[in-house]
Write a protein that binds this DNA or RNA. Structure first.
Lengths: 209, 209
DNA sequence: TCACCAACTGACCCATGGTCATATTTTGTC
DNA sequence: GACAAAATATGACCATGGGTCAGTTGGTGA
């Protein structure tokens, strides 16, 4: 009797459906202006039911953020496993992929930037928070691994600290600059893409063997 | 009769007092958990009075953020005007100063990271938003100028794009990584300081003449 | 002394996150 | 099929807090 298993699957499905609905609502109205009633309606559930699956509005948001990280990780994994590319070539492609991600998954990219805002209001013990941290860690490891591959195939200098550099890059990727301050046209004519690419160029020069 | 002038001064003073109170409350309770009633009480005013000086809670927050930028700018101006330092030396000191700022003005530093959150809910026409953008622009110009000084005194490569590099650095400084994701002990043993310093090291290698 | 006006007050409005007693559906048992 | 127990869902309700506004206060200038 796979009743329990089926129920578990259904519960998982409901949860995913709620996140789907939340994405549509949050991405459309913005986190602050979207209400839990909106989400409930979109999910074809009552508000109370939402709270059977998520502790709070913030946690629901973290679930979306986790998805964003998941998408990005999958993209990076593809790069990591690609044959016929040297380490430094993969490293170069990182910037490109990230820009593509920001362009093609703009809403998800933006969700990453509100990590702080939502994270603070979620208990650290939750499953969602844990997955989020795990995804994040994975992404850093992938970047780090790409650098290390470059050191093995001798296209990246041996003395580069792969772990530190990967963290620095990640910080740069998710810096608030690209999407907010920079997008104030008043401030600059450069677009975020420009800046990220230029920054990468300099780093590549610094680490190339 | 300087009555009008005096009144203007007093109004300005009130405004500053409110921001003082708001800092004490927001920095203590956190933006989300602090209420306008708290701020009003701390400022020894009624809630209604706050709204004579600031359009919204978010705008009050932007006023704090503007102060943060102002503090940081003053620090950077000192560096810019320092004699007896070459361009590359000043550039090197930028990282140090920023880390010091983050350590000694942690609350103000954190306020910078919530730019997006508050910015979205403020009309672009407001005086506070304008000053914020201006301070931001100034800081970018200072960083850019430091790089250009290095190019003049030949300690920094001629072909470095000062404007783009300054924006990339600013993005890195205000990335969400340092204070949030990185501070999850689970993820890494490095502290933000480490990462920023290492990143700078690489860049310095790349741009040094 | 008085009219005026800017500064200020705080009771009030209302939107919304979150709760909970109740209702509905599903499941297991006989 | 009947029925109790458990799981799931409902939506009226509550508390909170951002924001408003009719009314008060007190300084100013005539």
């Amino acid at each position: 009797m796979g009743v329990i298993e089926r129920k578990e699957r259904e519960k998982e499905l409901r949860s995913e459906n709620i996140i789907d609905a939340a994405e549509r609502i949050f991405f459309n109205k913005g986190f602050e202006h979207a209400t839990m009633n909106d989400v409930a309606e979109e999910a074809e559930l009552s508000k109370g039911a939402l709270y059977l699956y998520f502790h709070s509005k913030n946690e629901l948001c973290m679930a979306i953020l986790q998805r964003s990280l998941h998408i990005l990780r999958k993209i990076f994994v593809l790069l990591l496993n690609e044959k016929n590319l040297t380490g430094i070539e993969k490293f170069t492609k990182l910037a490109e992929l990230f820009i593509t991600f920001a362009k093609e998954h703009t809403n998800h990219y933006n969700s990453l930037l509100s990590y702080r805002e939502h994270r603070e209001n979620c208990p650290a013990t939750g499953k969602i928070i844990k997955s989020t941290i795990e995804e994040n860690q994975n992404i850093n490891n992938i970047i780090s691994d790409i650098i290390k591959m470059g050191q093995i195939d001798k296209t990246i200098k041996k003395n580069i600290d792969a772990d530190r550099l990967s963290l620095a890059l990640w910080g740069n990727f998710t810096g608030i600059m690209p999407s907010s301050i920079l997008s104030e046209k008043v401030i600059t004519n450069f677009n975020p893409e420009d800046i990220i690419k230029y920054h990468f160029e300099l780093l590549i020069n610094a680490i190339r063997n």
